[in-house]
Design a protein around this nucleic acid. Structure first.
Length: 113
DNA sequence: GTAATGACCTTGG
DNA sequence: ACCAAGGCCATTA
């Protein structure tokens, strides 16, 4: 361990960066992909540190199981997240992604673990 | 060092 | 079907 306890965090960042444009995923999916489905909270916490990361992390493409933009308030502005998603051709209304299942990006299927 | 919180999810009543 | 509580891991006070 080279003084890098971001092991789990780095994993999350890697997966999030791999999310293609116009697609979204959930914390549980990432956690489950990493083998820690019970630790979905840590995934969300990792996103909190995403801003501290050197590389940009599309945290706006990560939402909860309900497809709700729970972490929009953690961005620079609470509107940036929805704006970004709309730019990705993703319809967002009432802080919730429409056709969420249609835009859902599953690492298990896409990354074929 | 202990206690409480958090961008969540699952299960029980 | 709806409401409530627990669990998991890490960070911060």
């Amino acid at each position: 361990m080279a003084t890098n306890n971001s092991d789990f965090f780095d994993q999350v960042f890697q997966v999030v960066r791999l999310i293609p444009k116009g697609r979204v995923t959930t914390y549980g999916a990432i956690a489950n992909y990493l083998g820690a489905k019970s630790s979905s909270r840590v995934v969300g916490y990792a996103m909190n540190a995403a801003h501290s990361q050197k590389d940009y992390v599309p945290a706006h493409r990560v939402v909860n199981r309900n497809g709700q933009l729970t972490g929009k308030h953690h961005f620079n502005t609470p509107f940036i997240m929805q704006e970004m998603l709309e730019k990705e051709k993703i319809n967002v209304e009432n802080d919730t992604i429409l056709n969420f299942k249609n835009h859902f990006w599953d690492p298990f299927i896409e990354l074929k673990l």
